[in-house]
Design a protein around this nucleic acid. Structure first.
Lengths: 221, 221
DNA sequence: ACCTGAACACCGTTCAAGT
DNA sequence: ACCTGAACACCGTTCAAGT
């Protein structure tokens, strides 16, 4: 007798074996000793299953944070979020695809918000800053896994070369080489700390009346 | 007689009509008055076509930037990048999926790097900061379009409610409401400026010997 | 050289029928 | 109540054959 949680667990295991493109209802059924259509007893669609998987992936991030300064807590949480997304093959794509609203997602977002507000951020700014952090983590993780996917097929080294050995003479050759040589975790951490530094600076030197960061060039559709 | 550029143009037009999931070789063939397999004269696989589409989407971003302070230039470029990703349905997903190395992608990355280096950043930090900017933009745009996709199917309002009306009493209710009420372009701009503020601060107050931002909690696989 | 037609090995999903 | 078997309407891709 198949339980809902077993389906999600099996789906994540299959994700690791086959990747997102190889995750099909037929293969998942087989892995669970059941026919494909049996999954529709537990999920109305494959997309609903992916939603459940996404929230499941964030479970480890929901663990309580140790006490400490707000920025260290957020750096830690961001690192955990990245680790959770990278812990399973194509995990970042699974989470990015679905606008998740599961319990773990809410808890994580809530933690970021409360940490920022406890540090003294007004509610509106805290909300925007919290989302900025999430987006950076998501973007970084997606690209790390895109790179991993290319490495698997052997396309990675050729693309890296294409990027680095650009004919343009004043191309920032050194910078790119350093980017690709670096430990991705360290690179990730550097970016998060840039963001946190910006938040800290805003917190201390805020001119409270000013909403005047100038509007962007154009508002997209 | 079908030209390669026509295929890419047709594919982007079809993307707008049908979305990424509806972009199939058969439909694209039909739109170009050709059978599906004819596309394989120009692209070895659908993935190769998506790569070409991704770089094509970034074409408008490659336009020259007006002179100005480095941070204003980068804010402008980031806004353009976001606009380009949002200009076509599922554009962010198309770009995120492929680790693009086309000419426009290289030019955009190159511009960010040179702008940072011209502002006085050492090469390695400039590289990391440049990627941090890209990742934030990508993550933000993906989530904006995920939201757009849910809005189309009517799932959005229910999910928004799920996020905001959380039973948890100390849930950051106000912050979340403000996030969802805000103009996405303004929210985006706020995050970019946090990042730029962090970069500027690093530039001015850097203790040049220190590589000592502490290592992250765990290095993911 | 460029494209078609048919085929192969798949998909997600529906639904009557079985137990 | 839970699952199967068969079917429907699709996919990406290959490849001989046409023009």
């Amino acid at each position: 007798m198949l339980r809902r949680a077993d389906v999600v667990d099996g789906a994540i295991a299959l994700l690791d074996d086959e990747g997102l493109d190889g995750l099909t209802t037929r293969k998942l059924g087989a892995a669970l000793n059941v026919q494909g259509p049996a999954l529709y007893r537990h999920f109305p669609s494959k997309e609903a299953l992916l939603d459940a998987m996404a929230d499941r992936l964030l479970e480890p991030v929901a663990a309580p944070l140790p006490d400490g300064p707000w920025d260290e807590k957020l750096a830690l949480l961001a690192g955990r979020l990245r680790s959770a997304l990278l812990a399973h093959r194509d995990g970042a794509r699974v989470v990015a695809g679905t606008y998740v609203t599961g319990p773990n997602t809410r808890l994580v977002e809530n933690t970021i918000l409360k940490t920022l507000q406890a540090a003294g951020h007004p509610a509106d700014r805290a909300g925007w800053a919290a989302f900025a952090i999430s987006y950076y983590v998501l973007g970084h993780s997606i690209e790390e896994q895109a790179q991993a996917r290319l490495s698997a097929t052997g396309d990675w080294t050729s693309r890296k070369r294409a990027l680095i050995q650009h004919p343009d003479p004043d191309y920032a050759h050194t910078a790119l080489t350093k980017v690709f040589d670096a430990d991705p975790a360290e690179r990730f951490d550097y970016g998060i700390r840039l963001l946190l530094k910006g938040i800290r600076h805003e917190l201390h030197h805020a001119t409270p009346k000013t909403t005047s960061h100038r509007p962007p060039e154009n508002r997209a559709q």
